[in-house]
């Protein structure tokens, strides 16, 4: 099976984030890492390959620094990587990102000799995390499916082969799950925590250096899908509520509580 897994580099979970003064984004003085749900998508892709053979291609779209997560994916066992390099100041929304990835997959297919007309560029399965830890839109995977003209399913917990397609388990609200069968090729967005993530071995890290990592400047793809979203402002929420702790013996607390309620005009007739 030929699988492409779409990964995003996001600020490290423990990074102390700071909005830019103009609210257009965060300051870049933080560490970055692979988006956690994407790491599970990669793990699923590697397990599919181990079970049934084939190829795993790791793909990212992002500035130069994002190559780091591709090297990590190669070290864990991906066969090759595609880096769609965006200019540092570029801020693509989910629609523009999906358009660029779709174009890159089709281009990859024509360059690797697969049937040029095939929807997913010759890939049987496109995996990505269900959403990114930074923006959290959960849109890119779905829009990518639309761009590629493929069926998709989201929040995937489990994947099994079923005939010529797949049986997948989706997570719904409130502890419910949905099981459905779908044909291939398909786009799936993967839920975090469905497997234990593997570690890159030292041998894997060493071998990763000799695996192909293609860098494609975004402008070379010739995609002119404009952003559909515009971020107005990124800011730290203003504190609107304030908790007051009352200590002391119960009668005293009760009296002071009454005072506060009266002062806030929260008592009938006050």
């Amino acid at each position: 099976m030929k699988i492409v897994v779409c990964l995003k580099q996001v600020p490290a979970k423990d990074a102390p984030l700071r909005p830019l003064p103009d609210g257009s984004g965060i300051r870049e003085d933080v560490g970055y890492e692979m988006n956690e749900p994407d790491a599970y998508a990669l793990e699923e892709a590697l397990r599919r390959k181990e079970a049934g053979g084939g190829e795993v291609v790791a793909l990212t779209l992002g500035p130069e620094r994002a190559s780091q997560i591709l090297r990590e994916a190669l070290a864990k066992g991906a066969d090759r990587a595609l880096h769609l390099v965006s200019p540092p100041e570029a801020r693509l929304d989910a629609a523009a990102t999906a358009a660029a990835i779709a174009a890159a997959l089709q281009r990859d297919a024509s360059s690797s000799g697969a049937a040029a007309g095939s929807a997913a560029g010759g890939f049987d399965l496109v995996l990505t995390g269900l959403q990114s830890d930074d923006m959290g839109f959960a849109q890119t995977g779905v829009l990518l499916a639309e761009r590629l003209g493929l069926p998709h399913a989201t929040i995937i917990m489990q994947i099994e082969p079923a005939g010529s397609g797949l049986r997948v388990k989706r997570e719904l609200e409130g502890g419910f799950f949905q099981s459905l069968e779908m044909p291939l090729p398909a786009v799936l967005t993967i839920q975090s925590g469905i497997h234990k993530l593997r570690y890159a071995t030292l041998l894997g890290i060493k071998q990763a250096k000799n695996k192909p990592l293609a860098k494609i400047p975004l402008e070379e793809l010739g995609v002119d899908t404009p952003n559909c979203q515009r971020m107005l402002r990124l800011f730290v929420p203003q504190k609107t509520k304030k908790t007051i702790m009352l200590d002391g013996p119960a009668p005293e607390i009760a009296a002071r509580l009454l005072e506060h309620l009266r002062a806030a005009h929260l008592l009938p007739g006050s």
């Binding site: 234990k196 993530l197 593997r198 570690y199 071995t201 030292l202 041998l203």
Partner: peptide
């Protein structure tokens, strides 16, 4: 050992 156990290397 957890399911993703990887032994250390002797370098």
């Amino acid at each position: 050992q957890k399911s993703n156990f990887e032994p250390g290397y002797d370098l």
